[in-house]
């Protein structure tokens, strides 16, 4: 029986306005437990991702299969939270893994981690589809600064590095939870909403300059907090 609980974010913002409460209260199976992610585990995870991507670039299908197993959960969740359509989210995943397969050899490891590249591809494709199918007014209506929390009880469908992913997700949630609510709202709409700067400002009913400043401060703080695992 699910219980009504505040997410990790809400625990840091008990005095949030009514509008936020409507949005942030979610049926959750459990609260994320604080987990300290070992530095070596993150480095090992990124290294393994890069190695698999390199092998995929050389035509190794099994490497692509392993990447799928490692990434499908967060990538699918990302696509679904943007598109709110499971079938279309699967189409996006299919497209993105094909792109990874064809362009893996071109990936520049000095510019970032392999997962960041895959997540960027998924987000861009999903937002493109969202914008092409939805009128802007509808997009604004659909976009709400929702709860950011990866359900750690979900397990990868085909095994893989479950513990590392769970630890990573928990670290991200903790970092987000440490942000002021207004920064978290702005970041959520910016990352998952597919909205423009102005639309985010309208959605949050704050001046554009304020929203930009919140995005800047929030993302910089996230970077500092997550630096060990990036």
């Amino acid at each position: 029986m699910p219980t009504l609980q505040l997410t990790a974010f809400d625990r840091f913002e008990p005095a949030a306005p009514q509008r936020r409460s409507e949005v942030y209260f979610r049926l959750r199976m459990s609260d994320p437990a604080p987990i300290d992610t070992p530095l070596s585990a993150d480095a090992e995870r990124h290294g393994r991702d890069a190695q698999l991507l390199r092998r995929a670039g050389q035509g190794d299908q099994s490497a692509l299969g392993e990447l799928y197993d490692r990434w499908v959960r967060p990538l699918h969740a990302l696509a679904c939270n943007i598109l709110h359509d499971p079938a279309e989210s699967e189409d996006v995943l299919h497209d993105v893994f094909m792109t990874l397969w064809q362009k893996a050899a071109d990936f520049d490891t000095s510019r970032g981690h392999a997962f960041a590249w895959a997540a960027t591809l998924v987000r861009n494709r999903a937002i493109d589809r969202l914008r092409s199918r939805t009128r802007r007014a509808e997009l604004l209506d659909q976009s709400v600064p929702a709860d950011l929390g990866y359900d750690e009880i979900n397990t990868p469908a085909h095994g893989g590095d479950t513990a590392s992913l769970k630890e990573n997700a928990a670290a991200v949630r903790r970092a987000l939870a440490s942000l002021p609510a207004e920064q978290r709202d702005a970041l959520h709409l910016a990352y998952f909403g597919g909205l423009t700067q102005q639309e985010i400002a309208e959605k949050l009913a704050h001046p554009l300059g304020t929203v930009k400043a919140r995005i800047r401060r929030g993302l910089l703080k996230l970077r500092d907090t997550l630096a060990p695992q990036l």
């Binding site: 679904c80 499971p86 960041a116 997540a119 929390g149 997700a169 970041l187 990352y191």
Partner: peptide, 27 residues
């Protein structure tokens, strides 16, 4: 900052897993 933003994917609210044949279709 791009790498940081990409990490937000890990914080996406949970959704049901994709269909079982997606992996086979991709491969």
């Amino acid at each position: 900052l791009r790498a940081t933003a990409a990490e937000l994917a890990h914080a996406a609210p949970a959704v049901p897993p994709p269909s079982a044949d997606l992996r086979a279709r991709i491969l």
